[in-house]
Amino acid sequence: MTLIKQLSAKAWIWSFIGMVLVWLVTAIYTGGKGSADVITAALSFATFTVIVGIGQMFVITTGPGNVDLSIPSTISLSGAVAMKIMGGSDAMLIVGFLASLGCGLAVGMFNYMLIRVLRIPPIIATLSSSFLILSTAIAYGRGLKIKPPPLLADFTTAQVSGVPVLAVVIILFAVVMSVVLNRTLYGRAVLAIGQNMRAAWLAGINVERIRFMTYVLSAVLAAICGFLLSGFSGGASLNMGQEYLLASIAVVVIGGTSVAGGKANIPGIWGAAMFMFLLVTMLNTFGASAGIRLIMTGLIIVAVITIAGGDEPQR
């Protein structure tokens, strides 16, 4: 137990170590100027990555080949639909949120249908559905210039002495999901399926129901992210989900979740999301050009995964 504990601890601790290191380097370079503001910004932006990262983590944990590539287009669709329905009015806030959830639910069910009924591999299924979803968002596109309701905008950007309120809410949400992963029947079933789907079925787990729930969870979280993100950034746009495709996968892996499935952890997602934001900030502070920035980001991610991924299961 102590060994397993140490290993799993090791898996997520790396992303936090990386986060602190990158922050320190930036702080030293700038002479400590604005270091606190950087943390505030990192918390604000990481929040959105964490929301989709948690959904992606559950999907990836159900085993090799499982990944949700429709997250970015779901973010865009949900944002567009919610903005249009609310039309900038606080009174419609609940309705808009429910519409967002509805988008997520529909996308998740559609994805799962492609995977289960048509037996398309998840990576292809979610990729092709993402085109359909994005087209729907474009067809719906006239909502794009609509401002979010003031209440939503205020809530998503609110800060209490430098700490974003939304970040606190999502930290609490992460704690809840951590309990779901480790202490509920659903979480245990996800971990079992990720190790050996056939054995899980023979041990009495309803594999297909769990996979269904997992794809729906991921899409619903993406939809919530789209809703909050359009409030945060003053309206929806068609490409606002774009950067979350790789980010959602990267934070899961850097955070110490096994791509081979069956092993997951949620704290690491927070560390990794903060790390990713601070890394880009650091390179910006150095005045690196866009090209250098991308190369460095890529290399550093590879480095972190290599160091943190040293405890692959024996098989």
């Binding site: 137990m1 050996n196 054995a199 069956g262 092993k263």
Partner: peptide, 14 residues
Amino acid sequence: AGDRQTDGIFHLWS
């Protein structure tokens, strides 16, 4: 299960 590797054990677990 008799074919324990394929049908039985969860190799990451206690």
